[in-house]
């Protein structure tokens, strides 16, 4: 992740630089975690088959560990996709409109809507987490609090908000003509 040094209007540019630094730091930290989680899911699951079919004694509780890893794998992965701005989306309107001001305005509007929804997602997942903390539900075998897993949604939503704020500011600068389109 190269630090973006293109010129923009002062304050916004400072925020963008800050977010880019954050992005650099966070993605560097997240990637190895995601790799560890991904391989854990695969090998633990395969080991489960081995113990059941070959050794003949199923391992209890393996599934809940794998699922815990999986939730974090999903949400950290979704965060990485936000960082790369590669969330699944359709781009036919921009294709129709070309790359004029109209297209840039639509893009800004779409990003603003996304940002708004990301805030909603954070609020909803905060509610889930606070409920989880309140009720202290645990997994069947090890009694690991489900909130450990549910917190991944909250963390993911935070990443969405940070990266969408960046995208919003960038789109704004593009519309204002202070920045070239990505």
């Amino acid at each position: 992740m190269a630090i973006d040094t293109r010129p923009g209007s002062g304050a916004i540019q400072r925020v963008l630089t800050l977010i880019d630094r954050f992005d650099h730091w966070v993605t560097t930290a997240i990637r190895p975690i995601v790799v560890a989680l991904g391989l854990l899911i695969a090998f633990a699951f395969a080991a489960g088959v081995f113990f059941r079919s070959v050794v003949g004694s199923p391992v209890f509780g393996l599934e809940e560990l794998v699922l815990l890893a999986a939730m974090w794998f999903y949400l950290l992965g979704a965060g990485l996709a936000s960082s790369e701005r590669s969330h699944l989306s359709a781009d036919f309107l921009p294709m129709l409109l070309g790359d004029g001001k109209a297209a840039q305005a639509v893009q800004l509007f779409a990003t603003a809507l996304s940002l708004m929804m990301a805030v909603f997602i954070l609020v909803w997942s905060l509610d889930l987490v606070s409920w989880g903390l309140d009720k202290r539900q645990g997994t069947p075998v090890f009694g690991i609090p489900w909130v450990v897993s549910q917190a991944s949604l909250m963390f993911g939503a935070c990443l969405f908000i940070i990266y969408l704020s960046r995208d919003f500011l960038r789109d704004l600068l593009v519309l204002l003509g202070a920045r070239e389109a990505d």
Partner: peptide, 21 residues
């Protein structure tokens, strides 16, 4: 190469999973 495979897979899967939520 393996590292990159898993990271790319995480991003692809993560996007689908949040949609599924």
């Amino acid at each position: 190469g393996l590292f990159d495979c898993v990271v790319q897979a995480a991003a692809t899967t993560g996007v689908i999973m949040v949609i599924l939520v």
